[in-house]
């Protein structure tokens, strides 16, 4: 067996899984707290990626430092989107919520095409080409950094949800929103902040995406689909499931890319095939589910 390429595949899979997890976390937060699958989440990531690209190109701000700008920026975008589109339909049937967020997704994709054309942009920094050698494995510097940031982000989110007041409120609301109201939690405000935090997460993911992928109008949609696959793999709306699902998807893509003939082309479709396969084998997702 060709061990170096085996370990290389594992390393690549785990590293990309970090990025996928960061994209899926925001989606999971909104789904878990509000029960809404936000089809426009990927487009918010896309906006984060474009922001990072323009901050880098026009002002020379390092993509990783620009997280300090994209996160609050997307938080504000999120509050705006929540206030004017999500809040009015909170009590609507799921079908309306789906159509609304899908509409937002299509709107933002096409807005990006009008504003920035369909060109693929990339952020190339002084350290973009660097890589580390760890035994048999080569690891790109940017990939490693994005992975580390994703892991840190996940840890912060978990601590936030379990230790901080607002985080606990979000968890309470996700369990039972009438009960939360009775114990004095402002459900509407909690929803708004949860949506804002999810969008801030999308902003961070966007900055990370811009360093290791091309930025183009449809990149968010592609990432949304991967995130949906991860949700279905992990069971809807829980964080540990999202992390597990990210690993499964990242590793599968990486191994298919390495070991299947013309694998890099097929790897693009892995998330779609996995969605269909998982629904055949176990309709509630591999890690079980709390929500229908």
């Amino acid at each position: 067996m060709d061990w170096p390429s085996f370990f290389q595949s594992i390393a690549n899979g785990v590293l990309i899984a970090g990025l996928y997890a960061s994209v899926t976390l925001g989606l999971t937060l909104v789904l878990g707290v509000m029960g809404i699958v936000n089809f426009a989440h990927g487009e918010l990531v896309m906006l984060g990626a474009y922001s990072t690209f323009w901050l880098f190109t026009m002002l020379g701000i390092d993509p990783l430092l620009s997280i300090a700008i994209t996160a609050p920026l997307l938080f504000l975008v999120g509050i705006f989107v929540y206030r004017f589109t999500i809040r009015p339909i909170l009590k609507d049937p799921p079908l309306n919520q789906l159509l609304l967020t899908l509409g937002l997704s299509i709107f933002l994709q096409n807005l990006a095409m009008i504003l920035w054309k369909t060109d693929s942009r990339s952020v190339i920094t002084s350290y973009s080409g660097m890589s580390l050698h760890l035994g048999m494995v080569h690891v790109g510097a940017t990939r490693l950094i994005t992975f580390a940031i994703s892991v840190a982000l996940t840890a912060v989110l978990i601590v936030f949800l379990h230790k901080m007041r607002l985080g606990k409120a979000m968890r309470a609301v996700s369990e039972n929103n009438t009960g939360s109201w009775l114990v004095g939690i402002n459900v509407q405000k909690t929803y708004m902040l949860a949506f804002g935090v999810a969008c801030a997460l999308a902003g961070v993911s966007g900055s990370l995406v811009s360093t290791i992928m091309y930025t183009y109008p449809m990149v968010g949609f592609k990432l949304s689909l991967k995130a949906f696959c991860i949700l279905i793999l992990g069971g809807l709306g829980n964080i540990s499931g999202a992390l597990l699902g990210s690993l499964v998807l990242g590793l599968t893509e990486s191994f298919v890319g390495t070991y299947v003939p013309e694998g890099s082309g097929w790897a693009e479709g892995i998330s779609f095939f996995l969605i269909i396969v998982v629904l055949i084998i176990k309709p509630t997702g591999l890690a079980g589910t709390r929500r229908e």
């Binding site: 589109t85 159509l99 899908l102 509409g103 937002l104 299509i106 709107f107 009008i114 369909t118």
Partner: peptide, 17 residues
């Protein structure tokens, strides 16, 4: 030249709301 489907997105959002 690109993005004329922006109307689709806008219409969806406005119709639902």
């Amino acid at each position: 030249s690109y993005g004329h489907q922006i109307a689709y997105g806008l219409i969806l959002v406005l119709v639902v709301l």
